[in-house]
């Protein structure tokens, strides 16, 4: 049994002319919580979509359990996705279905279980995220943190082997953030999952991650345990982990020299 569940090899991807990844390599070990961090706009969400097979790489490949995702046939890809849970940043709950029906959705779509069994399973999953009492609410009645927990219950409904989290902590108050941090960790232990979480919330992510990958400018900059990262002497890693405004990642977006830009104004406006 190989240690790596997900392998990203020499991955290149661009959107239009914008390069997102250029020769990215990284490994997600089985059974661990892996955090992929980097500044906003480095394509972390894109990476999750590449892993889920919703996007195709321009070059290189993403392998899950040793199989290249973008070369799978449609039915193989769907079979793979059933073993993969993705928690969207927005939660992406179905707004026309109740909390209960949202969690029941993957079960109803993919199994022929009797109604009583579906009910038991759904209540179990909701219990795991602490929202069994909210089963009859509609998504519009939930707070952001609750919606994300319901989405999490839905993502684990089919007992996946991999859970992907897209920015699970963004826009959460400290309490629900704490709840989510604990949930991700305990679910990983209790269900024997492999978790990948993409985030730029350094404190929370490094709190639960076994392995941290830092990406910037389309490639892997550093990886190791959270402790190793904090103690890293690379100025780039330090800037990111400490959240300093200027450093190797410049404060300014690339632009021509300031004087030239002001001088050019008259020419452009005409």
């Amino acid at each position: 049994m190989s240690d790596a569940l997900i392998e990203v090899e020499n991955l290149s991807f661009r959107r239009g002319r914008r390069v997102i990844f250029e020769g990215l390599d990284l490994i997600v070990p089985r059974g661990k919580v892996t955090a992929i961090m980097g500044p906003s706009g480095t394509g972390k969400t894109t990476l999750l979509r590449l892993i889920g097979g919703q996007l195709r790489p321009d070059r290189g490949e993403v392998r899950v359990e040793g199989r290249p995702v973008h070369r799978l046939r449609r039915d193989e890809l769907y079979a793979l996705r059933k073993r993969m849970g993705l928690l969207f940043q927005s939660g992406a709950l179905f707004t026309d279905l109740s909390v209960f029906e949202n969690v029941a959705f993957p079960l109803r779509e993919h199994t022929r279980l009797p109604e009583t069994m579906i009910r038991d399973l759904v209540l179990m999953k909701l219990q795991a995220v602490g929202l069994r009492g909210a089963r009859d609410l509609m998504p519009s009645e939930l707070s952001g943190g609750m919606a994300r927990r319901v989405a999490l219950a839905r993502a684990i409904a089919l007992d996946p082997t991999v859970m992907l989290y897209d920015e699970p902590f963004t826009g959460q108050d400290p309490i629900s953030m704490g709840v989510l941090v604990r949930l991700i960790r305990t679910l990983n232990e209790a269900l024997g999952l492999t978790s990948v979480l993409v985030s730029h919330d350094v404190a929370e992510a490094s709190q639960i991650a076994d392995v941290v990958h830092l990406i910037a400018d389309g490639r892997l900059v550093a990886s190791g345990s959270a402790e190793q990262m904090r103690r890293s002497d690379s100025p780039w890693v330090r800037q990111f982990m400490e959240g300093e405004p200027d450093g190797p990642v410049p404060f300014h977006y690339p632009a021509p020299c300031l004087e030239d830009d002001f001088a050019a104004r008259t020419g452009e406006g005409a």
Partner: peptide, 12 residues
Amino acid sequence: TEQLSSMEMMAV
């Protein structure tokens, strides 16, 4: 709201 996308990721 990514509902279609999440459906796809649930293999539906």
